[in-house]
Amino acid sequence: MTDTNKAHSRISPQGQAMGKNATRLAALGLQRLRAQGLANVQAPMLRSEMCKTCACQPNTVPNGCLQTQMDFLKAATEGRPFLCHAPKDGRMCAGWVRARAELVANPLPPEALKLIEKWDYSPPDEEQAA
């Protein structure tokens, strides 16, 4: 991790721990998609590769941000699309697609799902700044 990321106000130890799990879920999901011959499916609404700032990309601010990680995990477990934020082009996050594939095959325990269900999605950054 770069010094810039270490000092970023959104990074926390809890976010980093969840980010490691998001990275792992995405890697497992990619293996699963490859095994099914679905890793290279092209669709206009899907990003084929993870962005440089993906929530599943190790050592990035979104990967260490608790708020982003909670939103990401909630979206992946509930099957709600998680859209890329960089660039904002309306396509679904490649990390989300991969993590979702793994979570469909291996759902989280009911206790974890109950905790995730209680999380309210964060407002967009534009609304927070207003």
Rank of each mutant, 00 (worst) to 15 (best):
A22V: 04
C93T: 02
T2F: 03
E117G: 12
V61R: 03
R34M: 11
C54M: 06
L66Q: 11
L83T: 03
G95H: 04
S122F: 08
A129E: 10
V41N: 10
K74N: 05
R98D: 09
L113I: 15
R100S: 08
A39Y: 02
I11G: 01
G29M: 00
A130W: 14
L115Y: 09
R32N: 15
A26D: 04
P44S: 13
L103S: 06
P107Y: 13
C93W: 02
A75K: 00
N59C: 06
N63T: 00
A35C: 11
L108A: 13
T23G: 13
S9M: 06
C84Y: 08
E49V: 01
Q67N: 08
A17L: 12
R47Q: 08
G79K: 00
V104Y: 08
Q67T: 14
P58W: 07
T2G: 04
A22Q: 03
R80T: 15
A55D: 03
C51V: 02
L33Y: 03
E111T: 15
G64S: 08
Y121N: 13
M50K: 01
K88W: 00
A26F: 01
L38H: 13
K114Q: 15
S9I: 12
A27Q: 11
D71G: 02
A99D: 04
P123I: 04
P87A: 05
V41W: 05
L28D: 10
D120C: 12
W119H: 15
F72H: 02
P124D: 06
R24C: 13
H85S: 13
S12Y: 07
P124I: 04
T68Q: 01
E117Y: 14
A27T: 05
T68A: 07
E78F: 07
M1A: 13
C56A: 14
D120Q: 15
M92Q: 09
M70W: 04
K118D: 14
I11A: 07
A130G: 14
Q16D: 06
F82M: 08
R10Q: 03
K6V: 09
T4Q: 15
A27V: 04
L66A: 14
Q69P: 03
Q16T: 08
W96P: 00
G37N: 10
A35G: 15
L108R: 09
L38K: 14
K74Q: 10
L46I: 09
N63F: 03
A39E: 14
Y121T: 12
P107L: 12
I11N: 05
L73D: 02
A99I: 03
T53L: 11
C56L: 07
N40V: 07
D3G: 10
E126F: 10
Q16G: 05
A86K: 12
C56I: 01
P62W: 00
D125V: 15
Q128N: 09
C65R: 05
P81G: 10
T77N: 05
S122E: 11
V104T: 11
E117S: 13
Q57K: 05
L108T: 08
D3M: 11
S122Q: 10
L46T: 04
C84W: 00
T60A: 08
P44D: 13
N59Q: 13
